[in-house]
Design a protein around this nucleic acid. Structure first.
Lengths: 151, 151
DNA sequence: CTAACTTCGTGCGTGTACGCATGAAATTTG
DNA sequence: CAAATTTCATGCGTACACGCACGAAGTTAG
């Protein structure tokens, strides 16, 4: 018999991939992907982030974020300037078009959020968010610590 | 103020990506990825699946699964034979080495499952699994149905 | 039994997930 | 101040996430 803890990883994977697919389909007509939406949403809250800080908040890998920024810059949705005080860093921000498109994307994503809500027992979304936050932070703490830092 | 339903997608994403990273690191020393582990786990339960059926159960895209199978076959972990009755299909199964490696992988993944359990309030894993299943199935039902099938 | 349609696998293209290495700039040390 | 270390962005390579289109084989319709 499968215990809950044994099937959790698979279910988490299935839920995320389903969300990702739906989002990609919804956003396709606006010419952006689900992850580009996440990037734009992260930019929207948080002024003039460096690429590294942006990656940290997404969360994603800096080199991944860079590739996304190149594409988004080509579409005129974001802009990169050299950091005012740190010459090696670059600050990222949404362009006016980026801001405007993001508003539409947020609207376009509403049916998905609603569908999730309807799929869940009433009032359990809050619990789900809390539990997922526990999982995320619990797994984030590790990384290069194998035996140390555990005690 | 951010409602739970508005932040759920991001939190779900963060939790999954954290899990994926941890898994990749754990499995790296065995020469397989987190997703290859999922594929092998799916094969283990379910004898002689076609590639399509395997993709459906993962769940993943058939063309993605094909690419993974090519790599796993090169490593001798899985084997593909032509389907006995359907000439266009191919059945997939773990090789003995694949079976053996999977046992080790399951062990190697144990710390991750434990860490998740420890991150959560006692007895809530069951709830989390249930809620995630709701999300997954709720989002799976759609796909090409825009206005129809809704009524 | 052909003809139309569906289903399986494959191949190609794009975007995202990383890791690792490099060079430049900032920070810390001596 | 000069040297070692850290931090930023970039570039390259691999694996996964798809979609789309193709040919081959199975199924259904006439």
């Amino acid at each position: 018999m499968k215990t809950a803890r044994d099937q959790l990883p698979m279910v988490l994977r299935a839920a995320y991939l389903a969300l990702h697919r739906q989002s990609d389909h919804r956003f396709a007509e606006y010419g952006v992907t689900a992850d580009q939406f996440v990037l734009m949403a992260t930019l929207q809250r948080g002024e003039a982030l460096t690429q590294r800080e942006l990656a940290r908040r997404m969360p994603s890998d800096p080199s991944t974020v860079r590739a996304m920024l190149v594409l988004l810059e080509k579409q005129g949705l974001i802009q990169r300037k050299t950091h005012p005080t740190d010459a090696r860093a670059r600050t990222v921000a949404l362009t006016p078009q980026g801001e405007k498109l993001f508003q539409k994307l947020w609207q376009a994503g509403e049916p998905i959020r609603k569908q999730i809500q309807n799929s869940l027992p009433p009032g359990t979304i809050q619990d789900l968010v809390r539990l997922l936050q526990c999982v995320a932070t619990g797994l984030k703490t590790d990384l290069h610590t194998d035996l140390e830092t555990v005690s």
